[in-house]
Amino acid sequence: MHRITLILALISSSPAFANDLVPASTPVNVARSDLQVSPDRDWNKLDARPGRNSETWTLDGELLNDVSFYGGTENNRTLFREVDRRNRPLPRFTSTMLPTDIPTLLENSYRIARDVSIFTLDSQEPIRFAGNPGIRFTYSFIGRDNLHRSGEAHAAIIDGRLYMATFEAPSIHYFANGIAAFRHIAASAHIARPARRR
């Protein structure tokens, strides 16, 4: 009888959605990691995570402005969940990668996980991210919805793990409208504790 009650409860419960507020000017750890940032305006943290150590923030919905954090992706791990491991396995991050390998890792991951047909790396330059030598790169792509999107990523490999923040938005209006807020977030990034995992 208990079994039936449990099944009834599971079936009748409505789907749980929870988008959390990320308040401005408050340091917050992201992507279940020691990567900490302080936004200069309020954001929404979406419940759905693109991958194991990742997290997405948005202002108007992930289709219109998407800030994603990858918090310490470990050696031999993928950025996203596998969609078809047997036929189209996702590329894996390796600790021996150089910062200049990161754009290709992101591109090849997008082609599989997000069905991106056209992806262009527009620029790349060395920067410091989270207090470590890293890379800033810009890119554009067209996904399943035929919408041109622009993106900017700030990333670094710290103690053999990948830390990255990306911002993506439709090239029309939304990218220009949100890029300054993203750059503020990226500039505030730092490792809050020594990079050590439990």
């Binding site: 959605f17 988008n19 929404n44 108007d60 919905g61 289709l63 219109l64 919805d145 919408l147």
Partner: peptide, 20 residues
């Protein structure tokens, strides 16, 4: 199309509204 989907997901679907 993307704006319309966002409106359905985050404005019309009351249980999923964005905090901001």
């Amino acid at each position: 199309g993307a704006v319309s989907q966002s409106i359905i997901n985050y404005q019309f679907f009351v249980g999923n509204r964005l905090e901001t």
